[in-house]
Simulated assay, not measured.
Amino acid sequence: MKYLLVMGLVLVVFWVWRNKREAERDAAAPRAPAPPQRETAVTEMVACDVCGVHLPKSEALIGGRGIYCSDAHRRQAGG
């Protein structure tokens, strides 16, 4: 029975020693710089007045009566 207790104590001591050694190694290791944050461009979305499809405002056709997804819808609406 005492051999089991001694073996358990040795395993606990070894486990504590190993974890402490790993923590010291991690603290001493140089840290890699964080990757630069990319700025994400926010694009305003608009809906076509004829079919309701959402598309970026930069790709939309702006007519006299509204915003359209294609030239055919602009002509259909009379804008």
Rank of each mutant, 00 (worst) to 15 (best):
E39V: 15
W15N: 12
I62K: 14
V53H: 06
P33V: 09
W17K: 14
M45Q: 15
W15M: 00
N19A: 08
A60I: 00
I67R: 01
R31E: 14
P33R: 05
P30K: 15
V42F: 11
W15A: 13
C48Q: 08
E44W: 08
E59D: 10
K20W: 07
M45Y: 10
I67H: 03
A72D: 15
R18D: 02
Y68P: 07
D26G: 02
A41K: 08
G66A: 12
A60H: 03
V53Q: 14
C48E: 08
A27T: 08
S58P: 03
G66M: 00
S70C: 08
I67G: 00
P56T: 03
M45I: 07
R21L: 12
E22G: 02
C51Q: 01
I62C: 01
D49G: 13
A47F: 02
D71A: 14
Q37S: 03
M45N: 04
T43R: 10
G64L: 07
R18M: 01
A23S: 09
E39Y: 02
G63N: 01
H54Y: 07
T43M: 09
E24I: 09
A47G: 00
E39H: 04
P56Q: 10
M45F: 00
P33A: 15
A47D: 14
A47H: 08
G64A: 13
A47W: 04
I67C: 10
C69R: 06
A29M: 06
V46R: 03
A72V: 05
P56C: 06
G52H: 13
R75Y: 10
T43A: 10
L55K: 05
R74S: 10
R65G: 02
V42H: 06
K20L: 09
S70A: 05
C51M: 10
G66N: 03
T40H: 09
L61P: 00
A28Y: 01
I67Y: 01
T43Q: 12
R31D: 11
S58Q: 11
A23E: 15
E24T: 13
N19V: 03
N19L: 06
A47T: 04
T43V: 10
I62M: 09
Q37N: 11
S70W: 06
K20G: 14
A41W: 08
P33F: 06
M45K: 11
E22V: 01
T40G: 07
L55G: 00
G66I: 03
S70M: 04
A47Q: 14
Y68R: 11
P30N: 02
